[in-house]
Structure formats: structure tokens, C-alpha cells
Computed example of a mutant assay.
Amino acid sequence: MTTVKLTASALAIAAVSASAAYARDNVQVAGSSTVLPYASIVAEAFGENFDFPTPVVESGGSSAGLKRFCEGVGENTIDIANASRAIREKEVAACAENGVTDIIEVKIGYDGIVFASQINGPAFSAFTPTDWFNALSPKVVVDGA
């Protein structure tokens, strides 16, 4: 994990800490289970390097975290939602209905998929270069269009 990513994440937590500290002792984070390991490392580093308590990080999934985030502002709601996707328009609308209007989206990285096969198994040739291109492309080319 690079220092830049940790620093960016810590700065995001610090920005929330300044406003959340008046209501409770720590920052509350919930959301994506795939982001949880990274968020936990950042929270621990934050707690060790700043004069604020270590943030509390919980899992539950991207949608559950964003739902909790959009419940409102105050000491009984979370401060940061971890998500492995962008916030949806209906979630932004739900946030607005509950007074959550200052939403800042910070992109930390991208999810990845790894394909593997047995060391002594057959050659991994299930996918062609065209398959990889189509899997990664924002638009799939079909018959030249």
C-alpha cells in the first residue's frame, strides 16, 4: 500500500473528524466488505498518527453502508460509507431527504478479479484477447459496431 493512498485516506478521515468530533469521540465508518481490510489499515494508521481516536470501521456491504450513511447527520449515524461502487442517484436523493447534502466521493482504487488455475493443471487458455478486451471495455463491439 502506498504512502499516497494512506495519506489521501487519512486526510479524508481527518476532514470528517473535525465535524464529527463534537458529537462523539470517534469517526464511524461502514460499508463494503471488499474495502474493509484497506479501511481497517487506514483507520489504525490514522489512530496511531493523529490526535483523534481510531475510527470504528464496520462491514455489511456497499449498499448497506450507503443506506446507513444516508440516514442523516448526527451522532447516531455513520460519517463515512465505504463502497466498491459509485453512489447511485436514488441514494443521493435519499441522503438529501434526510439532510445529508455535503457528499464528497473519494476514489481510492479499483476492484480486481484474478483468474487462476492449478500449477499442474491444463494451460489457462479459456479466454482469448478479444474476451479480455470485451470484459474491460466500456462498450462491447459486436459485428464492428
Rank of each mutant, 00 (worst) to 15 (best):
A93C: 01
S63G: 12
D143S: 15
G61E: 03
S40R: 11
F50S: 14
G31E: 08
N49R: 14
V100W: 02
F127H: 03
S33W: 12
C95Q: 04
F52W: 01
I80S: 05
G72I: 11
F127V: 07
A145I: 09
D131S: 00
N49A: 12
T3H: 13
E75C: 00
D131T: 01
G144D: 03
A10I: 07
R85A: 10
E105V: 02
I103S: 10
G109D: 14
V141G: 01
L136W: 03
G60H: 04
D143V: 06
A12Y: 03
V92W: 05
A39F: 15
E44F: 06
P122S: 09
T101E: 09
L11A: 14
A116H: 00
L6F: 15
A21G: 10
R85V: 02
V92G: 01
G61T: 13
E44D: 05
T54Y: 04
P53W: 05
A145C: 04
V140W: 02
N49M: 12
W132E: 09
A94T: 14
T7L: 12
A23G: 03
V141W: 02
L36E: 05
G65A: 02
P129I: 07
Q118S: 04
S63E: 14
A126Y: 07
A81Y: 06
Y22I: 14
A12M: 09
T2N: 09
D51E: 00
N98I: 00
S117K: 15
V4P: 01
A145H: 08
A145V: 13
V92M: 07
A83K: 13
A45T: 01
A30L: 01
I103N: 13
V29T: 13
V73A: 03
V114C: 08
A45M: 12
C70R: 10
T7M: 10
E105C: 06
F50L: 04
E91N: 09
M1T: 12
I113A: 15
G61R: 00
A94H: 13
C95I: 00
A81H: 09
G121L: 05
I87W: 04
A21M: 13
D25I: 00
I13K: 04
K90D: 13
T54N: 11
S62F: 02
A135R: 11
I108N: 11
S19P: 02
A10K: 08
T7N: 14
D102P: 00
V42M: 06
E58V: 10
R88Y: 12
A86F: 08
G65E: 06
E58W: 08
E44C: 02
R88H: 11
C95L: 06
L6P: 04
V42K: 01
G47F: 02
G112E: 08
V27N: 11
A14W: 00
G72Q: 13
L36F: 05
R85F: 06
W132F: 11
S117P: 00
V42I: 01
E75L: 11
S19Y: 09
V4N: 12
V42C: 02
A39V: 09
N98F: 02
V27C: 10
I104F: 07
S59A: 15
A21N: 15
V4F: 08
N49P: 00
T3C: 05
A30M: 09
R88S: 10
G72N: 13
P37Q: 08
A14T: 03
F46W: 07
A93G: 04
S32K: 06
A18S: 14
A15D: 15
A45F: 03
I41Q: 11
A15Q: 15
R68Y: 03
A18Y: 05
G65M: 05
I113R: 05
A81G: 10
A86G: 10
K139F: 01
